[in-house]
């Protein structure tokens, strides 16, 4: 039994890592990771929202009518995002400045909506919290790694401490959108290579067949689309 709960938590860390394996939440991943600290800030804010919204949605899962579940989820998520936004504004104004519009945009972060739809609305509160925590930490880890790589090459520093900035001029392109796409692509390629080594499918083809989350998903619409179109 305990193993099962550990599984809920570790699922989001590696096997279904939201950024590299599910390829969700790409927009904040590319936009805010110009420095490692921004990655941590974005990741932790999203984690907090994710855990709270997963808990609330899991508790309300029998109350929310199926037909209006998406607006209901969004409303719940938006509530928590407002709380997080006010907290960050009050206590970490520099992070708030760095994240800019992407902080309120956590509302439409697809990781959070996807976990609400795929997990929290079908599971009990404790697994939902663990799932949100695992997914959030997986998201944070990738964002921090990406921010660290881009900061190191693009600004020659790490967590704002100069590393190479004093003796080589950094490649500014890593801080710009092309550098973001490049680093993201390299990380996805690396995670695909690792997954392939462990006998898993690479994130290449889209569709439910190749989705790493298909076991926990079980969406009927998904299955219909797959068979209906082709």
């Amino acid at each position: 039994m305990a193993n099962k709960y550990v599984g809920y938590f570790t699922n989001g860390l590696v096997k279904e890592n939201p950024t590299l394996r599910l390829v969700l939440g790409t927009c904040p991943t590319l936009a805010v990771t110009t420095a490692a600290i921004n990655g941590i800030g974005m990741g932790l804010s999203a984690t907090l929202v994710l855990v709270c919204s997963n808990l609330a949605i899991s508790l309300l899962r029998n109350v929310i009518p199926d037909k209006v579940r998406i607006p209901a989820f969004i409303t719940i998520i938006a509530g928590f995002v407002s709380v997080v936004q006010m907290l960050v504004k009050a206590f970490l104004p520099s992070i708030d400045k760095a994240l800019g519009i992407y902080l309120p945009l956590i509302v439409v972060n697809c990781i959070i909506l996807a976990r609400a739809e795929m997990f929290a609305s079908k599971n009990k509160p404790l697994p939902s919290i663990l799932d949100g925590l695992g997914m959030g930490i997986g998201f944070t880890a990738v964002l921090t790694l990406m921010g660290a790589i881009r900061e190191l090459f693009g600004a020659g520093s790490l967590f704002s401490f100069p590393v190479t900035a004093n003796f080589i001029s950094p490649m500014i392109i890593f801080l710009l959108p092309p550098g973001g796409f490049f680093v993201f692509g390299m990380l996805v390629a690396a995670s695909n290579a690792i997954a392939k080594k462990n006998g898993k499918k690479a994130v290449e083809k889209m569709g439910c067949e190749n989705c790493p989350a298909k076991d926990s998903c079980g969406q009927e619409e998904c299955v219909k689309e797959e068979t209906g179109d082709e």
Binding site: S169, M171, I172, I173, L176
Partner: peptide, 10 residues
């Protein structure tokens, strides 16, 4: 272009 964007001064 990669060099121009990365090292605009040089």
């Amino acid at each position: 272009i990669i060099l121009l964007v990365s090292f605009p001064g040089a």
